[in-house]
Design a protein around this nucleic acid. Structure first.
Length: 238
DNA sequence: TCATTAAATTGTT
DNA sequence: AACAATTTAATGA
């Protein structure tokens, strides 16, 4: 089930519809865009596949076309710590790509996913030539910083309903994950993995959030009704 | 296109 | 963890 990176084997050029789902392309000038499009590779990751692993040299800056990825790291005790999920429209690894270091996280597919990769050399060329690209990367870093600070607060929360609410809100972040839209495709089992709760407890939390009117639970996904309510919701009966 | 069947996901205990 | 109910996906006429 858990195998080595398959993205590095079966890759292909992106299709038109895949390109349409890459948010930063529309910020580039035509010549910049042409160069980016020519170098982008797309790969299909099966469930459980590792898109990149800790310690490997950086080859690509990655983005999710569709599917769902998990960002995690192994601590000294050998336990896996999950940081966040990466839904469609999300691009990650710019920090390590900037410094041309090795990956600091494992990125694993939670379900069959299509992953795009921009070669690190093109990434640097765009940084050197494109104002629009620089702006995107800066916004991205800024937003991600805010989200990671928020994630620390989530970890300290003991109310499962709140944890699910805040984790969902993070996945619906329109800046980091513009491909998600109104409907996040995620199963309750997948959400349970990300949040670190049992599927039963997640199911219960989703029912509470739906009763509050902030989401609608659908088969294989969650529809957002009130993102602000998810972000700021307060423990019930308290 | 429709009906049947298998697989996935959900809701509940 | 196990189970039944529900929804989707796949298959073939």
């Amino acid at each position: 089930m858990t195998t080595d990176p398959t993205l590095h084997q079966r890759r292909r050029p992106p299709t038109a519809s895949e390109l349409a789902g890459i948010p930063w392309l529309k910020l580039l000038r035509p010549d910049e865009r042409d160069r980016a499009v020519a170098s982008i590779q797309v790969g299909d990751a099966l469930s459980g596949d590792l898109v990149c692993r800790v310690g490997r040299p950086v080859t690509y800056w990655f983005g999710v076309i569709d599917g769902l990825l998990k960002m995690s790291a192994d601590n000294a005790q050998g336990q896996t710590m999950t940081f966040t999920g990466v839904p469609p429209g999300g691009w990650f690894g710019e920090g390590t790509a900037l410094k041309r270091e090795s990956y600091r996280y494992n990125i694993q597919a939670l379900r069959p996913s299509r992953v795009a990769g921009l070669p690190v050399d093109t990434f640097h060329w765009l940084l050197d030539h494109s104002i629009g690209f620089n702006r995107f990367v800066m916004d991205q870093l800024n937003e991600r910083l805010a989200q990671f600070i928020g994630a620390r607060e989530i970890d300290r929360m003991n109310d499962p309903d709140l944890r699910v609410a805040r984790s969902l809100a993070a996945l619906f972040n329109p800046v980091l994950y513009p491909g998600v839209g109104e409907l996040l495709r995620i199963t309750q089992q997948e959400l349970a993995y990300l949040v670190g709760l049992s599927r039963q407890r997640v199911n219960e939390a989703l029912a509470v959030l739906q009763a509050q009117g902030s989401i609608r639970v659908e088969y294989g996904g969650v529809r957002i009704l009130d993102l602000q309510a998810l972000r700021t919701s307060v423990p019930a009966r308290g």
